[in-house]
Design a protein around this nucleic acid. Structure first.
Lengths: 231, 231
DNA sequence: TGCTGTGAACAAGTTCACAGCA
DNA sequence: TGCTGTGAACTTGTTCACAGCA
């Protein structure tokens, strides 16, 4: 397959968010120009990004908000339910569990895990915090799709392997560490389905964000100018 | 100036993190190969990234951990103190304030802000939560460099403008919204120094991370393979 | 010899111009 | 006419091969 730029996926998420905003305001029509302005990219870019996945507009008319929204949700896999566990229920894990917005997209927190006796057994958002020992069994039984990793950096690799071994398909890594993918594949997994492929790791690293910000403040001319032109 | 890839900056942050880990383990020497393996990139990439900023190694020998670490800190602007305010002290803002690691790099939280009477006046990590009205005065008096934005999406643009108007140089935006840069520049700023340039915005968006993860789980073959080869 | 530093080759992603359809 | 969809040009970033120095 051709290969779709990673940046395109990030932008699709942005477009979707904008479409939701428009829908709330009962705006029914938009255009590549309008989307571009709101997303801070060029209209060329919007059209190219959408073209990877199909033809969603009408020439001379633009896009119909609900239709494009529905199509983007389909493309991004947001019209299905995703079962999620959070591993690491310190402050960060708790903040994640309580952050609104996740549930909007059928991301359902079904289990919370930690190893510390201080936290295990407590209840967060109505869910008991379980011990990591229970993870493999729990993932299998509850058809868990993703794990959110919010443990300290020095435990991130182990926890990621535990998640991979338990059979999750993807990991959202909040720890400021590179997860070595090599060791993730089927760590301990016995009955590997035909569908099994490498575990996907996506990173969300806010300490890195702080550092990039420091750099660009010192070197503003190197900053991606984000020209937000509109053709 | 030539222009350094944004991705390079992100990778430099990763290299720095790895060097810190090596230093803790009293490992004094490394190489582009070693760094590459740990960072999950190629050794070519490591050398090219470093070459943008200077010559830090010794041919035939590799890199000296403390030296390379010091140089990367200098390049990234992490050998100076950054004064930071957090705007939005809901759960997310509180989690950010309490997250360890920020203070390691001279990122000092000097002020916390919100508008809700439920939060204003309370103390988080030893700092009082102030009302947004006090922001401009506070930023000026305390030489605030950056603002971390942790308000609900529908208030993000206003809060960003308030930060820009108050005179911060950069904003780390945790809200799932595109900040329109157009409106940020010198909103209400009177005495603009020669140094003044556009406010830098860097985004940390974990909802977007969730959605990207969903997409790549559904389309694993489109995932950036992260080959982590080592030449 | 070994590993860095770097110009040149290549690949990926973005911009553009315009064809095509409502 | 107006705005989408898309092949082609271009620009940016990555990979590579190898020169150069300890």
């Amino acid at each position: 397959m051709t290969g779709i730029p990673t940046a395109t996926i990030s932008r699709l998420v942005t477009y979707l968010r904008i479409l939701e905003g428009l829908e709330v305001q009962d705006i029914l029509r938009t255009s590549s120009n309008d989307l571009a302005e709101r997303a801070g990219v060029t209209a060329f870019q919007v059209r190219k990004d959408l073209a990877y996945f199909g033809r969603f507009g009408t020439r001379g008319m633009g896009y119909t908000v609900p239709i494009l929204k529905r199509e983007l949700m389909r493309v991004l896999g947001l019209n299905q339910t995703w079962n999620v566990v959070i591993v690491g229920m310190g402050r960060l894990g708790q903040a994640i569990a309580n952050y609104p917005g996740a549930s909007d997209y059928q991301f359902q927190y079904v289990g919370l895990f930690d190893v510390s006796p201080d936290v295990v057994g407590r209840t967060v958002r109505g869910l008991p915090v379980r011990h990591m020992d229970e993870l493999p069994e729990f993932v299998r039984r509850n058809k868990v799709d993703m794990g959110f990793l919010a443990v300290p950096p020095d435990h991130a690799q182990d926890a990621a392997q535990a998640l991979a071994g338990a059979g999750v398909r993807g990991i959202l890594n909040f720890a400021p560490t590179v997860i070595q993918p090599r060791m993730l594949e089927r760590a301990g997994q016995q009955e590997i389905s035909d569908e099994w492929r490498a575990v996907i790791v996506e990173n969300v690293d806010f300490l890195a964000g702080m550092k990039r910000l420091a750099f660009y403040i010192l070197n503003p001319h190197l900053n991606a100018v984000d020209t937000e032109e509109t053709e």
